[in-house]
Design a protein around this nucleic acid. Structure first.
Length: 837
RNA sequence: GCGAGGAUGGCGGAAUUGGGAGACGCACUGGAUUUAGGAUCCAGCCCCUUUUUGGGAUGGGGGUUCAAAUCCCCCUCCUCGCACCA
């Protein structure tokens, strides 16, 4: 078959041009032209009255400088999907916005003296321009910026909603305190127990903080993971572990000689006869009562003071220790007297902050008991074995058979757990109980650049929420000192802090703290639905119309324990309050892989970024898009490389040439009267439509491009400019449009198409031309491929065997051998098994 | 330590209800065309052996099977998440 190159040399019938003078695709004018067209024709403006809605949401971004290939990959992948859905006839909502509050802006302000707002807004402008250069199909009229008062007014409103529903409360909590910078630090700013800026060892400081009661939703957040069929198992498992449900038993221990009790949570009530001491977290409020007047009071106080100052990390790394309080508790099951310790391995936040020490059956308790020479009492034996105290080097933590356990002796652990729990419940000394690892969400930040907490403190009325009509509580702009000194910079802004009590009009003070930025991002997906509404965060009708999010795209599992839990939490709260019709924001989440450069994550701080705007100008947006998509599967990490760019450029130029040189042959009409070769090509075309459609649906964009490349190669080498060729090129142009939209629209218009392909329906395939009429059956001998047979579809096993036995290559292998059996997989494989000798 | 995922040519990656390993691209080699090319076209491109034939190969080792990248067991390494959760 003559190839393309020989054609233009020898035969000019097909009007082929000399390659050496071929025009190259001028990406910059073409891309500009179509971006302008899309914009002027409002191609991406959302239909407010959708018949067939599709909410395609990509995670919005933090505006730290210009976007680069690392961040841009997310938006390209989201865009491919959005454009595909548009072509399938959906009314797509594809919005974008900025998570614009947060520490980097503030740090920049502290470092360079630029106001956070100025820095943020400039970055947004630059990044918006880059996204537009990439041709991302956002409905820019819905862009939201969380630091703008129109937005954070509703973030504050959300706070008040939670407050009204009893889900926002204030309590004392320990925060990270840098004794050198004299400032409170966020958890992210503490690196291995040290200040990220000055390396000083971080201390703990007790401050009154606002919390959201996410623990009240723990069970639903856990249970409803089942509803999230389109989430990766990985993220669901991470969330499940994070929520950390643990079923067990509460046991009430009385304190000897005091009018006090401890409620202890345990998952192993079957070990209750093995309790030989009790440990209380150093933060526990009851310690004061316990030690008051004891001879060791001062020593215990000293221990508590030191322990509470330590970071979590320090507490974990050192050997377990503690101090005897001088008090004893009574084991309710056998009235044994056990010493009460304060020990810093006990977590105040989990359970009740008190644990019963069972050294024989818990490794931590075992170490602790050995250190302080406390008795160790074996109450569980491994099945069929007997533990010996003198030879024990570790606790036996597995289930087993209860011994030395009064009436429960002889029971196995499983039965014993239930029996002891029931027994305690009957005696009102405890009962079944569930604990979660999940903690309430601390949302106060002693920082400037965030949404102010809309709370007012009045001497007479106490804590008073700002009335909704007074929202937003504006963040004062005339601030110059952004350095937090143990309290929010806002505390020093007199005009902000001083206000009047909404209830009694007396002089009052505002809360000086701002909210964690995760609050802003927990509900942003709702604001897109109604971004300019100044009476509601989103109208009920819009929420009913657009929710849930049909496809959520972005981030990797790093958000699994943060944003993705918070945003499910907010959705449930708003659902309960009747504002939105769904209790899960989205059933489909697609996680994206990071972009690497030189093997490390591409990021501004690593200094290895490839800016997208600049790249799009120089080499083309479509080249960038194609390189990103083809380099790796979307969910996997991808290395940004120049080689990938070269391949993408080649593809685009080749595609462009194919179309421009054969304009007159291209047709949207399906071919008729096919020769054998043509039929083969037509089948390939139809198979490509199927493959690309399926791959688009399932985010296998890299293999979709591979299929397109195959078809392009085939058409490029095709000799006859008949209908099937012309139709093939037409198909190719169409299938390319979600990936390289500028090129596709340009080619579409160059062959006489009108408008943009975005508005044109996705292609159907011809069901009669998916499978070829002939099939290739692989002939194996003893599992090794020896030959192939071209046979008609529908061929029977006998014919295949006959064909195989007639085959020359097969005969060679069968010489002097006996056939043991044959295995035939219809229309695929025939395996001839021989006797081994 | 616990949990999850992964390891396929020189490279990115295809192929898993078990059925032709290496699609597609990059790099590389040879050739064509060109004043030139980082353009374009043709051919080759897992390893060994070879005239064709053939043999080996999906991190390592074992197993199941007519047949294993795919299923099972053991081991090594890598990535991510959690990490005193009672």
């Amino acid at each position: 078959m003559p190839k393309y190159s020989t054609l233009y040399q020898k035969n000019n019938n097909f009007c082929l041009t000399d390659f050496s003078t071929i025009m190259k695709y001028n990406h910059s004018s073409v891309e500009k032209k179509w971006q302008k067209y899309w914009d002027e024709q409002n191609v991406f403006v959302t239909n407010n009255d959708p018949k067939n809605k599709f909410y395609n949401l990509v995670m919005f971004a933090y505006p730290s400088g210009d976007i680069h290939m690392g961040t841009g990959r997310n938006y390209v992948i989201g865009d491919v999907y959005a454009r595909f859905k548009m072509r399938q006839g959906y009314d797509v909502l594809h919005p974008f916005g900025w998570d614009a509050f947060g520490l980097p802006a503030e740090n920049q302000a502290i470092k360079a003296g630029v106001h956070p707002e100025k820095w943020t807004m400039e970055n947004i402008q630059i990044s918006d321009a880059s996204l537009k250069l990439l041709g991302i199909s956002y409905d820019w009229e819905r862009e939201i910026i969380t630091c703008s008062p129109d937005y954070y007014k509703w973030t504050q409103w959300m706070f008040l909603l939670l407050y009204k529903r009893g889900l926002a409360y204030k309590k004392e909590a320990y925060v990270n305190w840098c004794p050198s910078c004299l400032t409170v630090l966020a958890n992210e700013q503490v690196d291995e127990g040290k200040c990220y800026r000055c390396d000083a060892v971080i201390e703990k400081k007790k401050l009154k903080q606002w919390f959201f009661k996410i623990t009240e939703y723990a069970e639903r957040l856990l249970k409803d993971l089942e509803k999230l069929g389109g989430w990766s198992e990985n993220v669901k498992i991470i969330q499940k572990n994070w929520i950390g449900k643990s079923e067990g038993c509460d046991i009430v221990f009385k304190v000897e000689g005091k009018d006090a009790v401890f409620n202890v949570f345990t998952t192993r009530p079957d070990t209750i006869y093995g309790v030989t001491f009790m440990s209380v977290a150093p933060e526990h409020q009851m310690i004061d009562d316990l030690i008051k007047g004891n001879s060791t009071e001062d020593e215990v106080r000293k221990y508590v003071k030191e322990a509470t100052k330590k970071t979590d990390r320090e507490r974990i790394e050192k050997e377990k220790d503690g101090i005897f309080t001088g008090c004893h508790a009574i084991n309710p099951i056998n009235n044994e007297k056990i010493p009460i310790f304060v020990a810093d391995y006990v977590l105040y936040e989990y359970g009740s902050g008190v644990v019963m020490g069972v050294p024989a059956h818990d490794e931590r308790d075992f170490q602790f008991a050995r250190k302080y020479n406390l008795p160790i009492k074996i109450v569980i034996n491994p099945p069929g074995e007997t533990l010996k105290l003198d030879t024990m080097e570790h606790a036996y933590e597995e289930p087993g058979v209860m011994v030395q356990s009064g009436q429960f002796t002889g029971m196995n652990s499983e039965k014993g757990i239930a029996a002891v729990t029931d027994f305690l419940a009957q005696k009102k000394l405890g009962g079944a109980s569930v604990n979660y690892r999940l903690k309430d969400w601390l949302i106060s930040r002693q920082r400037y650049w965030g949404a102010p907490i809309p709370i007012i403190y009045c001497d007479r009325c106490g804590t008073v929420p700002t009335p909704e009509s007074a929202l937003p509580v504006l963040l004062p702009k005339e601030v110059t000192d952004f350095v937090p000194r143990g309290k929010s910079p806002l505390a020093a802004v007199e005009s902000f802090i001083h206000t009047r009590c909404p209830t009694c009009n007396a002089e009052a003070k505002r809360d000086p703290d701002t909210m964690d930025t995760f609050v802003c991002s927990s509900w942003y997906f709702l604001r897109y639905l109604d971004p300019k509404n100044d009476r509601e965060f989103c109208s009920k009708v819009n929420a009913d119309t657009w929710l849930p999010v049909d496809q959520y795209i972005g981030g990797s599992s790093e958000h699994a324990t943060g944003h993705l839990i918070y945003f499910r939490f907010f959705t449930k709260v708003l659902f309960d309050a009747g504002f939105i019709p769904v209790d899960e924001p989205t059933k489909n989440l697609f996680n994206l892989g990071m972009v690497l450069k030189g093997g490390v994550k591409m990021s501004k701080s690593k200094g290895n970024i490839v800016p997208i705007g600049q790249f799009a100008k120089q080499r083309g947006a479509d080249v960038a898009r194609l390189a990103i998509i083809f380099a790796a599967p979307p969910e996997r990490e991808m290395e940004w490389s120049n080689e990938g760019v070269i391949g993408a450029e080649r593809f685009i130029n080749r595609m462009y040439r194919l179309v421009i040189e054969n304009k007159s042959s291209i047709t949207q009409t399906k071919p008729e009267k096919l020769s054998q070769d043509e039929e083969h090509l037509f089948i390939k075309i139809n198979q490509t439509i199927v493959k690309v459609t399926n791959d688009l649906e399932s985010f296998k964009f890299n293999t979709a491009i591979a299929a397109l490349w195959e078809l392009l190669n085939e058409l490029y080498g095709w000799q006859k400019r008949s209908d099937v060729f012309g139709y093939g090129v037409y198909v190719l142009i169409n299938l390319l449009s979600p990936f390289v939209p500028h090129l596709a629209d340009e080619l579409w218009s160059s062959i006489g198409g009108r408008g943009t392909l975005v508005k044109k329906n996705w292609l159907d395939y011809d069901k009669n031309y998916i499978d070829g009429k002939s099939i290739t059956v692989v002939i194996q001998i003893n599992g090794k491929v020896r030959s192939h047979l071209e046979l008609a579809r529908g061929v029977g096993e006998k014919e295949v065997i006959k064909g195989a036995l007639d085959d020359e290559k097969i005969q060679r292998h069968l010489k002097d051998k006996k056939i043991k059996k044959t295995i035939y997989v219809p229309e695929k494989i025939l395996n001839i098994v021989l006797f081994s000798d």
